[in-house]
Amino acid sequence: MRFSRPRRDPVEVNLTPLIDVVFLLLIFFMVSTTFETRQALELELPESTSGVAAEVSPVTVVITATGLYRLGERELSPAELPGALAAEAEQAREHGLVVEADGRASHASVVRVLDQAGQQGIQRVRIATTESRSSETTSPQAETP
């Protein structure tokens, strides 16, 4: 005797809800993620009308109004500056060094960085400035000495 088998529908996995959930998660993480390249410092850069825009350098020394230095994410005292700059000297010789000095920083602090750069053989040193306030926009500029 022959029994008839019940017909089964083919099993299908519906991927539409899975794709919807993945896109929602992607959008959530894109919106909620913050992109910070470095910590913000309250710097008042000097103004310049003859500066030209420069590419971003991987080696940047920031001089605060109080005379402290920042190289990358490290805060440095004046005594620590030579050793820290020596560690970054090879990259600075290749790509250049940018000095971002606060407008209220002492001249001696800036000269100390320039002197250390000269001792390390770094020849491409740029000083970051902003456009003169008479212009419509204010964007970072760099002068090549």
Results as ranks from 00 to 15, higher is better:
Thr16Trp: 06
Thr16Pro: 00
Pro17Trp: 15
Pro17Ile: 10
Pro17Ala: 08
Leu18Gly: 14
Leu18Trp: 15
Ile19Ser: 08
Val21Thr: 14
Val22Glu: 11
Phe23Met: 13
Phe23Val: 10
Leu24Gln: 08
Leu25Pro: 06
Leu26Asn: 09
Leu26Trp: 01
Leu26Ile: 12
Phe28Thr: 13
Phe28Glu: 08
Phe29Pro: 00
Met30Cys: 10
Met30Val: 07
Met30Gly: 09
Val31Asn: 02
Ser32Ile: 02
Ser32Met: 06
Thr33His: 13
Thr34Ile: 09
Phe35Asp: 01
Phe35Asn: 10
Phe35Ser: 11
Glu36Pro: 05
Thr37Asp: 08
Arg38His: 12
Gln39Pro: 09
Ala40Tyr: 03
Ala40Trp: 00
Ala40Gly: 12
Leu41Thr: 02
Leu41Pro: 03
Glu42Trp: 12
Glu42Cys: 05
Leu43His: 05
Leu43Val: 05
Leu43Thr: 08
Leu43Gln: 04
Glu44Asp: 12
Glu44Val: 15
Pro46His: 05
Thr49Arg: 13
Ser50Pro: 01
Ser50Thr: 11
Val52Pro: 07
Val52Cys: 10
Val52Arg: 15
Ala53Val: 11
Ala53Ser: 13
Ala54Arg: 14
Ala54Leu: 14
Glu55Pro: 14
Glu55Ala: 15
Val56Asp: 11
Ser57Gln: 12
Ser57Asp: 03
Ser57Pro: 00
Pro58Phe: 04
Pro58Leu: 01
Val59Ala: 07
Thr60Phe: 03
Thr60Pro: 07
Thr60His: 03
Thr60Asp: 11
Val61Gly: 00
Val61Ser: 01
Val61Pro: 02
Val62Trp: 05
Val62Ile: 14
Val62Ala: 04
Ile63Leu: 11
Ile63Arg: 01
Ile63Glu: 04
Ile63Ala: 09
Ile63Thr: 08
Ile63Tyr: 01
Ala65Leu: 06
Thr66Glu: 15
Gly67Ser: 07
Tyr69Gly: 07
Arg70Asn: 08
Leu71Tyr: 04
Gly72Glu: 00
Glu73Ile: 01
Glu73Asn: 10
Glu75Gly: 02
Leu76Ser: 03
Ser77Arg: 08
Ser77Pro: 03
